[in-house]
Simulated scan of single mutants.
Amino acid sequence: MEGNSGYKDYVAGLTAGIAMVVTGHPFDTVKVKLQIHNTEAHGIQYKNGLHCAARILKTEGVKGLYRGATSSFIGMAFESSLVFGIYSQTKLLLQGGSDGGKPQPQAIVPSAAFGGAIISFILCPSELLKCRMQVQGADSVVLSSSRYGGPLECALKTVKYEGITGIFRGGFTTLLRESIGNAVFFSTYEYVRYHLHLQLKDASFESSQLTDVGVGIMSGGLGGIACWTAVLPLDVAKTIIQTTPEKNQTRNPFLILQSIYARSGLRGCYTGLGPTIVRAFPANAAAIVTWELSAKLLGIKRDLN
């Protein structure tokens, strides 16, 4: 990338976040529903992700799949802008001002982890509101007096009953998930992107808009799958921490996962894997393609030579 790209990296990242929410939010709603209902001690509510999605569509319609999308749009737009911007700028700094050639893990991993750690402070409250909105659907056991009419009401009630720190419930788990997840995502993305372009070049394929989109889809999609495979147990713990009505519920993600593992095994720790993986490929592919196209339109250059 050009050394003076500055704000452009953040603008490109913002467009990537919007594309990710539009594509992936319905899958995320199903994932959250599964994580709440299928990890509770009293039994499983949904057979699988398809059963859960069908149930939501039957009882709430399409709007049920986009429940909590408002806070998600706001959170993801800022989060994506920051994470892509911080990652790009930090990587550029660690690589001495050049962005090209073979991926350098010593620059990619710390840049991605740093970006993930920073955005976790924004992502935590927005995801708390999103998750609380998502779990109060038709199948929820939440009391009507505790229901939220929208994300603003959810935020106000959370602060009223839990204090300002209640908005940041699950913050440590979010930080862990984002630091590890972004390091895995960007590492996979960079290596897949590099090797695909290398193979296309060796096969005498001319670089075009179509081939760039194809590489973006594959590198972004595989990066998303790798990321969520690595951090889904932390996400399960985060969802439980943020949505449980129990005031004495531990905030330690490892203790929660230990409890789930004792009850349901490894499968329990990976509750929601189906819709998460199904979502990860198109959502992250859309984000990367949008990011790269936006970067190109804004004049940010990335060379592989």
Score class of each variant (00 low, 15 high):
143 L>A: 13
179 S>R: 01
151 P>L: 02
265 G>R: 05
147 R>P: 00
159 V>C: 08
281 F>I: 01
255 L>N: 00
235 D>M: 11
205 F>N: 06
156 L>D: 07
205 F>K: 11
264 S>M: 15
183 A>C: 08
157 K>A: 13
232 L>M: 03
191 Y>A: 06
182 N>W: 04
194 Y>Q: 02
249 Q>N: 06
182 N>E: 00
167 I>V: 13
283 A>S: 15
260 I>S: 02
224 G>V: 09
184 V>I: 12
192 V>H: 08
156 L>N: 12
167 I>S: 08
266 L>S: 14
215 V>E: 09
184 V>G: 04
202 D>M: 07
231 V>E: 08
188 T>M: 14
238 K>I: 02
211 T>M: 10
187 S>V: 03
219 S>K: 04
156 L>H: 10
281 F>L: 01
252 N>L: 06
286 A>I: 07
231 V>G: 06
210 L>R: 11
257 L>P: 02
187 S>C: 10
238 K>W: 01
199 Q>H: 14
147 R>Q: 11
138 A>I: 05
236 V>W: 09
154 C>P: 02
152 L>D: 03
214 G>Q: 12
177 R>F: 09
270 Y>K: 01
201 K>E: 11
203 A>Y: 08
193 R>H: 03
198 L>V: 12
197 H>R: 08
208 S>I: 10
221 G>A: 09
226 A>P: 01
186 F>P: 01
148 Y>H: 15
166 G>C: 11
193 R>L: 05
208 S>H: 09
252 N>D: 12
271 T>W: 07
285 A>H: 04
218 M>N: 11
250 T>N: 12
175 L>H: 03
265 G>K: 11
157 K>H: 10
221 G>V: 06
213 V>M: 06
146 S>L: 14
223 G>Y: 06
262 A>T: 08
222 L>R: 07
206 E>D: 11
249 Q>D: 05
228 W>A: 00
227 C>P: 03
198 L>F: 07
215 V>M: 10
241 I>Q: 15
274 G>S: 14
192 V>E: 04
269 C>E: 02
218 M>F: 12
163 G>K: 10
273 L>N: 01
162 E>K: 14
179 S>L: 02
179 S>A: 14
203 A>N: 13
151 P>T: 05
184 V>Q: 03
270 Y>Q: 03
176 L>I: 04
170 G>Q: 10
187 S>W: 06
147 R>Y: 05
286 A>H: 08
159 V>W: 12
263 R>V: 04
198 L>E: 05
238 K>R: 05
283 A>E: 14
277 I>T: 15
254 F>I: 13
162 E>D: 12
245 P>A: 11
223 G>H: 13
243 T>Y: 09
180 I>W: 11
200 L>D: 07
175 L>P: 04
201 K>V: 00
217 I>Q: 07
238 K>P: 01
220 G>Q: 08
225 I>G: 02
277 I>P: 00
